[in-house]
């Protein structure tokens, strides 16, 4: 990139920390795996540690843990209804995992595993497949009604069904690209502006203000994207359970 010594793409590089080979596959423990593990660790400490006291009147951490629980529970209930109850642990895990991955990645010098399309796409495709399976298990072949709008004239099926099919298949792409692109854009932006701060030296305070503002915005984006990923998962679940 143009900013000389600072390459805004460098932060996305996956580096091997502990080489592991399983058959023909390279499953080395990388910085990506490290930060995934860190995310798991911190989520667990946050939720299990804060609720250790089981306080009736919660402290700050416990009430944050309760808030995240209730937020996801409401999200699921509002978007899926009571039938979504059994998927709550999965949806909650998904939200916390992505949220912590996004937020930890905003600390300078860390790695953001959600800024890798392969990670977001893997999550999206797993959700996509799971939701499709749930749909077929619940409705059998009736699940295919999802691809034909209720009450539309029959002759439009020729055109509407392929369109709905393409639309349905585009879900994992839009789901994964959204998270990936948001994370990449935010981090590149931060890195470039941080580069300006260093380049301008004494006058670096001007972009520093911008940097602080954008960092605040990126925290919001980090939370919002975790939320959006979760709410879309809920909406897909709703479609699979209730058809449209």
């Amino acid at each position: 990139m143009a900013s000389g010594s600072i390459d805004p793409m460098h932060q996305f590089e996956v580096t091997t920390l502990l080489p592991i080979q399983l058959g023909n596959y390279d499953i080395s423990f990388t910085n990506s795996a490290l930060f995934m593990s860190l995310s798991v660790l911190l989520v667990t400490i946050f939720l299990v540690g804060s609720t250790r006291g089981r306080a009736l009147v919660p402290g700050r951490w416990q009430s944050m843990a309760e808030m995240s629980y209730e937020m996801v529970a409401n999200l699921l209930r509002d978007n899926v209804g009571s039938a979504g109850r059994q998927y709550f642990p999965f949806v909650f895990t998904l939200f916390m995992f992505i949220l912590f991955g996004n937020v930890i990645g905003l600390v300078p010098g860390t790695f953001t595993f959600t800024s890798h399309i392969v990670v977001t796409f893997a999550m999206a495709i797993i959700i996509f497949l799971a939701v499709t399976v749930i749909g077929f298990v619940r409705h059998g072949a009736g699940f295919l009604r999802l691809f034909f709008p209720h009450g539309a004239p029959l002759w439009t099926a020729v055109i509407l069904i392929p369109i709905e099919l393409v639309s349905y298949l585009s879900r994992p792409i839009s789901l994964s690209v959204r998270l990936f692109a948001n994370m990449v854009v935010g981090h590149v932006l931060l890195k470039v502006i941080a580069g300006f701060v260093i380049m301008l030296g004494v006058f670096g305070f001007i972009p520093l203000g911008v940097l602080v503002g954008i960092t605040a915005l990126e925290f919001l984006v980090a939370a919002l994207q975790a939320y959006v990923f979760t709410i879309l998962t809920c909406i897909y679940l709703h479609d699979a359970i209730h058809l449209h």
Partner: peptide
């Protein structure tokens, strides 16, 4: 690195 990332994603998740 794709296989490794997916592998660790599934494990950690």
């Amino acid at each position: 690195t794709f296989v490794g990332q997916i592998f660790w994603l599934i494990v950690t998740f």
